[in-house]
């Protein structure tokens, strides 16, 4: 028996937002009967056509496919289209408290349907290049060369999933996309794609572009290592309250709190962070 989390079970047994929206603004459909799972997602936008005000789904598939669809509709409601596009398959899996790795393709299917719906709404429809193939069409919107003939999956889509999820083995790729899971003849090609994506990842690492997480880590490190010891030497201290984008919110403590020159101290902290972390940072003192 699969080890499903209580959240997966809840969304399977009591799925939210099942059904259709007759006057939907955007509809995304992925999967097929042959594949064993399929999802049709309906989105309704507000009058300004900015925010998603309602989302409904129909799913043919196993418990985790139904739960992933239910989770997806809950997650995108209230989001703008751009915010919704930022929802990744990991976000869906995380919302559900995790999915067994063999079932990660269900979360990918959810993210896919969302993309298809929004792309189509924006007129960015990509042609279904493998229409002649009668089995697959799992992810019809991804152009590229067909890699997995059994499930109709292209190299473009595989590279995206490999990169997004940091996959390193062909078994993982099968768990996430199904590719290679039937006849297995494309597994060597999948291994090549992994090598290609890993190669690109190494290049990217050489010229770092800070992710939010990395930025937060570096800010904390610099505060602990370079700044707080100096303040403490003068009987003062500071506390990191929050990091909001490029805004670092700090509160002064001990001797620094209420000190007439704390404004200068804040400037000093900002200078240090810009020097050691990233130029675009702003430091703001808050009274928390």
């Amino acid at each position: 028996m699969w080890d499903y989390t209580p959240i997966v079970k809840d969304h399977f047994l009591n799925p939210r937002n099942v059904g259709d929206i007759p006057d939907a603004d955007a509809v995304g459909e992925v999967g097929s009967l042959a594949c064993g799972d399929a999802l049709k997602l309906y989105l309704k936008l507000d009058d300004n056509k900015e925010k998603i005000v309602d989302a409904k789904f129909q799913t043919f598939g196993c418990a985790s496919a139904i739960a992933s669809s239910s989770a997806l509709t809950e997650m995108v409601k209230g989001k703008t289209l751009d915010e919704a596009l930022a929802v990744s398959n990991q976000d869906i899996a995380e919302f559900l408290g995790g999915l067994p790795e063999e079932k990660m393709h269900c979360s990918v299917m959810g993210q896919e349907a969302l993309e298809v719906a929004i792309f189509k709404y924006r007129g960015l429809e990509v042609p279904d290049h493998d229409a002649e193939h009668d089995h697959g069409h799992a992810y019809p919107d991804y152009e590229g060369t067909l890699v997995c003939k059994c499930f109709g999956i292209t190299d473009t889509f595989l590279k995206k999933v490999i990169a997004d999820n940091g996959l390193t083995t062909s078994e993982q790729v099968t768990n996430f996309t199904k590719a290679g899971g039937a006849c297995g003849s494309c597994i060597p090609k999948i291994k090549e794609l992994i090598a290609e994506v890993l190669g690109q990842a190494k290049e990217a690492a050489a010229k770092p572009k800070l992710s939010n997480l990395k930025k937060m880590q570096l800010v904390q490190e610099v505060l602990e290592r370079d700044i707080r010891p100096m303040l403490r030497a003068d009987g003062g201290d500071l506390e990191l309250i929050d990091i909001d984008g490029d805004h670092v919110l700090i509160a002064f403590r001990k001797a620094c709190a209420g000190c007439a020159s704390s404004g200068n101290t804040a400037k000093f902290v900002e200078m240090k962070l810009r020097e050691l972390v990233y130029e675009g940072l702003h430091v703001q003192e808050v009274s928390a």
Binding site: G36, D37, G61, C62, A63, E102, K103, C150, K178
Partner: peptide, 26 residues
């Protein structure tokens, strides 16, 4: 798999030839 799990909620134990039950994809 969805059928089996809903049956299982009621204490009914059966099995399936579906792909999703076994972890294979076909």
């Amino acid at each position: 798999e969805a059928i089996l799990l809903l049956l299982s909620e009621l204490g009914i134990c059966a099995s399936s030839g579906s792909a999703c039950t076994s972890g294979s994809l076909e």
